[in-house]
Design a protein around this nucleic acid. Structure first.
Length: 500
RNA sequence: GACCCCCUAGCUCAGCUGGUUAGAGCAUCUCACUUUUAAUGAGAGGGUCGAGGGUUCGAGUCCCUCGGGGGUCACCA
């Protein structure tokens, strides 16, 4: 393996440490008494503290040095004086270990007391220094000048995504994004658990990939000698649990779809699905408004978030627009009363690319996607989807051509999808049969029939409303990111080839 | 899958219509320095220019193939 000059020197330092009787990778627990942020907030002088973290910058001035120590909460300045850490005549710890053998990126533990430097910087006067772990590779070294401008930042997306561990160490805003992601998920979980709903786990390996229309990843179980799929959705399993008598169930579901990748699609992604018995989609809209306001509050301390130069306002209520009105407004087409041929003519009229495999539902969806979607920047519920495009959703109580469905759009992107769930087993069977017809017509995304799910519905499912929230996309909206890769710790990449 | 762009030191980047020994800043190494904070001053080392082939007297630069990444589009109801 080819090593750079810097790596070779660090490996040499490692050996020298061992010769001095210092274990560069000690096994013992190291008990830090504070975190960097604890010391910075409400700074107190003369406090005895023990800190642990990575040595990040060093400014050596002969017999005294300044350094910064970075832990999970931030950085804190260290002041290291030769004669204070080496009280006897033996100055090896300072002159050799600290100045020569330690490098940027090494983990150390320090003990001492807090004080203010003459320039007023909160600092730790180090009395004792312990090597906790030696780093062999040099970290990138971004620097921030007086004007807050970052120089030499570690920015190459390929390197950042492949080596997220390095990205997280040197780019503090990256760590903040993932802390925000965790708060989003925690806020949802807290809200649901307070309402008494049950968090459940349902199969990732499924014999029939149901609940959505997408190409699945296929795998094989040896002992059963059967083909299995990684789930594209968990919807049908959560509904089975509602049949079983749970009245509120939810799951943060990692789904897998064997489709293209772009800035809003990764082959594996997370959808939070929630089903609540005796509710309808109107109730769910109100519930979602409150949930997202809470989540935004948890992340930002207010119900607004900045995204690509616009302020997104998450405070309820959100606009509610029917799909018919949306298409009427932006495409000037009234889908009400148009049959498939009429729709096809209208699409052609607008210069859209369409083909014969597209049914009525798909044509309407194209109209909406092409002309309307991008206009909904502030959170907006698009409601009452045509029945042809929603095979798991109950027909609208006032008009059977539509369904009791909404999608929530933010910044022109679909963030949530909800129904008054179809619980009529006869109707559901017919809808599945219509999907089979679409599949035979050439639609390779039509849904599979799940006989066991139909059997479950035949045992009776209470009226239920369900929702799926695209967690990754919601995190994007809340953290101002425009690429899904920035909200996934390890986005999908082509496998890296290593020389052995 | 299609098109466009990118790949040069540990990091961020220069490198013109092809020209002699491939540069800078930071990082690294040596020396100096007991309150610095993009520390400072003096000196030094570090490169298979993504890989392979071709054109040429001569290729980081031009051409071809391959690999990786980014963007746009398609696909993803």
């Amino acid at each position: 393996m080819q090593r750079s000059e810097q790596e070779r020197l660090r490996i040499e330092s490692l050996a020298q440490m061992r010769e001095l009787g210092i274990d560069p990778y000690p096994a013992a627990e190291f008990k830090a008494t504070y975190k960097a942020a604890d010391l910075t907030e409400g700074f107190e002088e003369g406090l005895q503290v023990v800190l642990a973290g990575r040595l990040m910058t060093r400014r050596i001035m002969g017999k005294a040095s300044f350094a910064s120590l970075q832990d999970s909460t931030g950085t804190f300045q260290l002041y290291i004086n030769r004669d204070e850490i080496c009280e006897s005549e033996d100055k090896v710890l300072y002159n050799t270990v600290f100045k020569k053998l330690l490098d940027r990126g090494d983990f150390i533990g320090v003990e001492g007391e807090t004080f203010l430097t003459k320039t007023g910087e909160p600092s730790l006067r180090v009395r004792k220094l312990t090597v906790l772990s030696k780093a062999i590779r040099p970290l990138p070294s971004p620097k921030t000048d007086d004007d807050g401008v970052v120089h030499d930042a570690f920015t190459d997306p390929e390197l950042r995504y492949r080596m997220r561990y390095v990205d997280l160490v040197v780019n503090p805003e990256v760590r903040k994004t993932f802390e925000a992601r965790s708060r989003v998920i925690q806020a949802m979980r807290d809200t649901f658990s307070e309402k008494g709903w049950l968090e459940v786990d349902t199969p990732v390996l499924q014999a029939i990939p149901g609940g959505a229309a997408a190409r699945p990843f296929i795998t094989h179980h040896n002992a059963l000698d059967s083909q299995l799929y990684l789930r594209i959705a968990n919807e049908l399993y959560l509904k089975r649990l509602i049949v079983g008598g749970f009245e509120g169930v939810y799951e943060f579901s990692r789904n897998f779809r064997n489709e293209g990748m772009d800035r809003t699609h990764n082959p594996e992604f997370t959808i939070m699905e929630l089903y609540v018995a005796y509710k309808d989609y109107r109730w769910m809209m109100t519930e979602m408004e409150q949930l997202l306001a809470n989540v935004c509050q948890a992340v930002h301390g207010e119900t607004r978030a900045e995204l690509a130069g616009t302020t997104i306002n998450f405070a309820p209520p959100y606009a509610r627009v029917t799909m018919r009105d949306a298409i009427l407004e932006y495409a000037k087409v009234d889908i009400d009363g148009l049959d498939e041929d009429g729709l096809r003519a209208a699409c052609k009229n607008l210069g859209m690319e369409i083909d014969d495999s597209m049914g009525k539902g798909k044509l309407i969806d194209e109209l909406f996607g092409e002309h309307c979607e991008r206009h909904y920047v502030q959170p907006t519920f698009i409601t009452d989807y045509p029945i042809e495009m929603s095979p798991l959703c109950k027909a609208h109580r006032d008009n059977p051509r539509y369904t009791e469905r909404f999608e929530l759009f933010i910044a022109g992107t679909e963030v949530a999808n909800a129904y008054s769930e179809l619980n009529d087993p006869i109707d559901q069977r017919e809808r599945f049969e219509a999907q089979v017809a679409l599949m035979e017509r050439g639609d390779d995304e039509a849904m599979f029939v799940d006989q066991d799910f139909l059997r479950a519905l035949e045992y009776g499912m209470p009226p239920t409303s369900g929702v799926g929230i695209g967690v990754d996309r919601l995190v994007m909206m809340l953290t101002g990111q425009t690429s899904i890769q920035e909200v996934l710790l390890f986005p999908q990449m082509r496998p890296e080839i290593f020389e052995s």
